[in-house]
């Protein structure tokens, strides 16, 4: 591959990314960083967990993203009585015109490109687990038969704060399958005024698709493959490995402030999936910066989003009000010092 072609591919990626971000930004007021993180996860091939109180635009972001990319999307409102088959689909007895009856699989809402799992922690753990196979292997198995999901498959789940009524804790295994976790904050006063002025008019802003509808899935898959082509040097991999290991109490044996806090507040640290998410996110960051290789800074940019939902905090942390993001930031400081 010639340098010119590679350079053009990077520019193409940057253009698509910027265009989608701009289109979503026309509808979603504020949350610029959250939108960029969600897009990063999307092109990295991961899924995103969004935590925020109801009414701040979680669903709007997913819908806008699907429209901008010209991909299909579905929305599942998770409730306490939602069953796994309601997500994956089920087999029904179907009678043919000839009168013959046969079991036919009816795909559930999971068979889409972009899936919004709204208030995912209101479902029971059993139903939540129905997403596990789909998120990890891009397939679902019903009655012993596996069905492939259409690429690209992207799950964007929203999460109400655990303190709210009628919520369940997400299993660690499921949390680990989300590439990033994004916290949506309340909009500022200026953003709130803009939301009022743009959403209460007769002609609210609409999304113009960035990609051609027929070619959109292939284009997105091509861009995702391009992300994986980004070069990662051994020293960056070593940095990522050290960073992830520092989040585990067993490995954090040093006397630095971060390691002491990890031993005190963290029960389980980030998994190898955390390291993978760091590298994949960093690759997207490198492309956005026009580089064919990953640097330390790329890793640092997405470290909090990639690791904070993977730390299982101890009771001492909850009692002390120590958030996982705080631990990750402390670990980052230590890791930066160790690398220099």
């Amino acid at each position: 591959m010639t340098p010119a072609v590679a350079s053009a591919a990077i520019e193409d990626f940057q253009q698509v990314f910027a265009a989608v971000r701009a289109e979503v930004g026309r509808v979603v007021i504020g949350h610029e960083n959250a939108i960029e993180t969600i897009l990063t996860a999307f092109f990295a091939g991961g899924h995103v967990l969004i935590e925020g109180v109801p009414g701040i635009g979680k669903t709007l972001i997913v819908r806008s993203l699907a429209e901008a990319l010209n991909l299909s999307s579905n929305r599942i409102q998770f409730t306490v009585d939602l069953m796994p088959a309601d997500i994956t689909g089920t087999r029904i007895i179907n009678e043919s015109p000839s009168g013959q009856r046969e079991l036919t699989f009816v795909p559930g809402p999971i068979f889409t490109h972009l899936l919004l799992g709204d208030e995912i922690n209101r479902a029971t753990p059993k139903t939540q687990s129905a997403l596990l196979e789909a998120m990890a292997e891009h397939q679902v198995t019903v009655a012993g038969t596996s069905y492939r999901l259409m690429p690209p498959f992207f799950v964007l789940a929203t999460l109400n704060p655990i303190e709210m009524e009628g919520t369940y804790q997400l299993p660690e295994a499921q949390l680990d399958r989300f590439l990033f976790k994004v916290l949506l904050a309340y909009p500022s006063e200026a953003e709130l005024i803009r939301i009022l002025s743009t959403t209460t008019t007769a002609d609210p802003p609409t999304i113009r698709p960035v990609l051609d509808p027929e070619q959109a899935p292939a284009r997105v898959e091509g861009l995702k493959r391009l992300v994986r082509e980004v070069l990662v040097a051994p020293h960056v991999e070593q940095y990522v490995a050290g960073l992830v290991r520092l989040t585990t109490p067993a490995a954090a044996r040093g006397d630095s402030e971060a390691e002491v806090e990890v031993r005190r507040y963290v029960t389980y640290g980030a998994s190898p999936r955390g390291a993978q998410s760091l590298v994949l996110g960093a690759k997207v960051m490198a492309l956005l910066d026009g580089r064919p290789h990953v640097t330390y800074d790329d890793v640092d940019k997405i470290a909090v989003a990639a690791l904070r939902h993977r730390l299982v905090m101890s009771f001492a942390a909850e009692a002390a009000g120590v958030a996982p993001a705080h631990i990750v930031e402390r670990v980052l400081v230590t890791a930066r010092r160790l690398r220099s």
Binding site: P3, E229, L231, A233, P234, R291, H293, T295
Partner: peptide, 29 residues
């Protein structure tokens, strides 16, 4: 240099020499 030099030299120690889609671009840079 934004890490280009180190990346190129370190990737050369890999079994395939770090060759990939972006290797030529990295060398050019």
């Amino acid at each position: 240099l934004a890490g280009r030099l180190r990346t190129l030299v370190e990737l050369a120690t890999r079994p395939n020499g770090g060759r990939g889609f972006f290797h030529a671009l990295l060398v050019a840079q």
